[in-house]
Every structure is written in structure tokens, then in C-alpha cells.
Design a protein around this nucleic acid. Structure first.
Lengths: 235, 235
DNA sequence: ACAGGACTGACCGTCAGTCAGTAAATGCCT
DNA sequence: AGGCATTTACTGACTGACGGTCAGTCCTGT
């Protein structure tokens, strides 16, 4: 094969992109290094020139996704004129809007991340995302505790817990994207919606807000998600 | 090798036991089927006579551990004379006592389950344990909501959330058992303790109990755990 | 011209899984 | 009770694929 030299950053990016596509498609374990290098158009040696092991690509990919998530959020926390609750509300509104606006990509992403064979991928990605988001959320909580919007407490630990809550929806989401039939999906979607409503109430109680203050998802999100899913099944 | 025939249940049990020891020792991925059959004193073919794939042993092991956890808990929920809070308190007391009494085994178990290479094992085990415990906890919560011990709400979803909370301590426990030095362990132990205290407060608020009502771990648990760890490091 | 960074591809050891066959247990007929 | 047939439990050599290595080659900037 002809030898093509590229800037290391470019090559690295291409390798991660190739891995990303394949990991999402077939899972981390089921993707071989040979497939990654085939897609990236590069030799085995070059792969191991950039990454010490297959798992390192997984780490790099998780890192990249965590950075993307952090970048989108960071700007929101900057606004100094808002109090704690307004800030949290903005943060949540932003996330809700993202979920709806990007429903197609989100569907694909979730379908990839929540498939049983992708637990390792899921865990890596969410651990890293949590790690970057915890300080941001902790900051929001701390200000809210200081200005009386929220009940006082250990802001860091509570940020960790609140974010942890969202990652424990794994099973309910997995049931959604793994639903084998429309009936199963309907059941899973109902459970999903119930779970998130309960989670909002739980968050309200943790922070000492009136019930209904915090909403993680739009009321009709499961259905909207469902529309995309049905489209995919049909196509 | 001479051929020894045993009752299928016995053989299956021996295979799971051998796998359990090896998975705990070196992790799921790092354990080969050859090692499992070597320890169990059986041939490759016999292994695949009992399990369709390596992963099936992992499932079976997770199943076994989930059943053990459920059996120990089930008896507690049976007592009809107690109200919701007393029942929950009993459940938590039982778990706290278990953690202390079985600190040595718990240490070994945790050290195995929370090592980074064992994420798959961890996830399988805890998903299955959650699945059997959720109905039990939901039952406790429902009775407590009915008799006014707890704030009303979706008992199933809240049971799921409360149990989910405990699994999101993964990182803080992983930091504990993966600590490379005594200093790192001390830091991790402090974070661990803080995290669990916050979690107790969170649970109080979710159920509408006065702060301090729920305690997941004994005040000195991290230190007790630490003693065992130091012993191991020294030995 | 040459040093060192970027890259190649044949090769290696290991591992999960297969399979054709075999020994022991069990049922069944006489 | 003893022979025969069927089923169950098991053996171990083998395969293909995979992650990772390495000796060496090409390319680019200085």
C-alpha cells in the first residue's frame, strides 16, 4: 500500500473517528483493530504507533465525548447575574432542548451506548462525562445553597449523586432501545417516562424545592423518541 | 485423563466456583477458559457442554450472587408487625452489620468487583442484584408511604433510584480499593465516608425523614475497611 | 545528507469456540 | 440378571481470529 504521511493530530483524529463509527455500530469488543485500521486506511503498526493498546482508543473516544459535553455546558454556568435555581433551570432547559433538537443523533448514540455489548463503552464515556460535569454542577449547587435557593449540604457530593442518578437510568433506557417489538417499546417508554418524573421529584426533594420545579425531560419526550424509533424499525 | 462423571448440578457448581475464584483474582477478561477448566479439572468440551460461551459463566455467577443477596434480605421484609420506617431501618441495620461482620470477604469481593478490568463483572452482578432487591425495597417503601412514615410517591421508581444511588458509589469505592499508597487511601476513604453521609441525607430528604434518620454505613466503616486493607498491603 | 518521525506488513502467541469421537449411565427387552 | 440400545457426560486436538510486536522502510524538515 502506498504510504501517506499526515499530521499526527489528523491521523489520530481519523483513527478515533473510525473507531467511534465502528464501536457505535457493533460494540467495542466486537470491533477488531483490523477493522479500525481498514476503515482508517492505515497499517497495524501505525495504529500501535498512536495508541499503546486497543483500549486506549476507547479512552480517547470517551475523553473526546466528555469534552464535547463539557464545552456545551460550560458557557451556561458563566452567567453571574442568575441565582442558583435560575442557573440550574437554565442548565436543565439546555439539556432538555438538546435532547429534543438532536433526537436523531441522540437516538443513534443511545442505541449504541445502551446496547448490552457496549457496557464498557458506556461506562467509560459516562464516567468521564461525570468527571467534567461534577465541578460545574457542584458550582451551581454551591451558589444556590449560598443564596438560599437550595437546602444546604455537601455540594460536591450532591452534584455527584444528582449526576449519578441520571446514569442509573441505564436499564430503563436499555429497555427502550433494545425493545424487540412495538408493544415492548410502549411498555418500556411508559417505564422510562415514569422513571424520569420520579427522578425530578427526587431532585426537588434533595434540593428542597417545591415538587415539579425540576424536570429532566419534556413531558412527551418518550413519544418523540418513539417516533424516531418507529421510523427506524420501519425503514 | 481419566473420565469422571458427576451430577450435572455438581459439575456446574464446580465450574462456577472455579470461575468465581479466578474472576475475583484476575478479572473476567484476563481469565481464560483454559484456566477455568484447569482449576475445575475438566476438559474444554465439558465446559462448552455446560455453558454456550464464556460469558454465560459470568451471567450464572451474577445470578448466583444476586440470589444470595436476595435470600439474606427476603426474611427481613416478612415481619408484618413493623411500620415502613422500622422495616427500612431493619433492612439498613442488617446491611450495615453485614458490611462490618464480613469485612474480610467484603474487602476481597470489592477489590475484585471494583477493579477497572472488572467493569463487566460489576455491572452484571449489580444489575442482577438490583433486579431482585427492587421489589423488596419497593414493598418497604409502599408500606411506609401508606402508613405515613414516608412522603408519598412512585414506590417502584423510588426503590430503583435509591438502589441506583448505591451503585453509583462505584467510583468512590474504586478509588478506595485501587489506592496505590496509604496516603491515596486516606484521601479516598475520606471521600468515601463523605459520599455515604451525603447519600444518607439525600435518602432522608427523598423519603421526608428528619436528617440523620438513614445511615448506610457505620461512622467508622471506612477506617475499619482501611484496617483490613493495610493488613493486606503489609502481608 | 541525514536524523528522526511516520508508517508498513509479516509474524507471533493466545484465546474462545468446534467437533468427531468415546466412556459411563440409563432404560428396555427378554 | 444379562445383553443391547440410547442418551448423557465428557475428552482433547484442532481452527480461525484476534491483539500486539518488530525489523525495517519511507518521507520530511533542516
Amino acid at each position: 500500500m502506498p504510504r501517506v504521511v499526515k499530521h499526527p493530530e489528523v491521523r489520530r483524529g481519523e483513527l478515533i473517528a473510525a473507531a467511534r463509527a465502528l464501536f457505535f455500530e457493533k460494540g467495542y469488543e466486537a470491533t477488531s483493530v483490523d477493522e479500525i485500521i481498514g476503515r482508517a486506511g492505515i497499517s497495524k503498526g501505525a495504529f500501535y504507533y498512536y495508541f499503546p493498546a486497543k483500549e486506549a482508543v476507547l479512552e480517547a473516544l470517551a475523553e473526546q465525548m466528555a469534552r464535547e459535553a463539557a464545552n456545551e455546558t460550560q458557557a451556561l454556568v458563566a452567567d453571574q447575574t442568575l441565582n442558583g435555581f435560575e442557573r440550574l433551570d437554565l442548565f436543565l432547559k439546555h439539556n432538555r432542548r438538546l435532547k429534543v433538537e438532536r433526537a436523531p443523533e441522540a437516538l443513534a448514540l443511545f442505541e449504541a451506548l445502551f446496547r448490552p455489548e457496549n457496557i464498557a463503552l458506556y461506562h467509560h464515556v459516562f464516567t468521564r462525562i461525570s468527571r467534567v460535569l461534577i465541578p460545574l454542577v457542584a458550582d451551581i449547587l454551591q451558589r444556590g445553597m449560598d443564596d438560599g435557593s437550595f437546602l444546604p449540604g455537601d455540594a460536591d457530593a450532591m452534584a455527584e449523586i444528582l449526576l449519578g442518578l441520571t446514569t442509573t437510568t441505564h436499564d430503563s433506557v436499555a429497555a427502550l432501545v433494545g425493545a424487540p417489538s412495538e408493544e415492548a417499546f410502549q411498555v418500556a417508554a411508559a417505564a422510562f417516562q415514569r422513571r424520569w418524573v420520579a427522578q425530578g421529584i427526587v431532585a426537588d426533594r434533595i434540593l428542597g424545592l417545591p415538587e415539579g420545579s425540576i424536570q429532566f425531560i419534556e413531558p412527551g419526550f418518550a413519544e418523540a423518541f418513539f417516533a424516531g424509533w418507529r421510523l427506524k424499525q420501519a425503514g
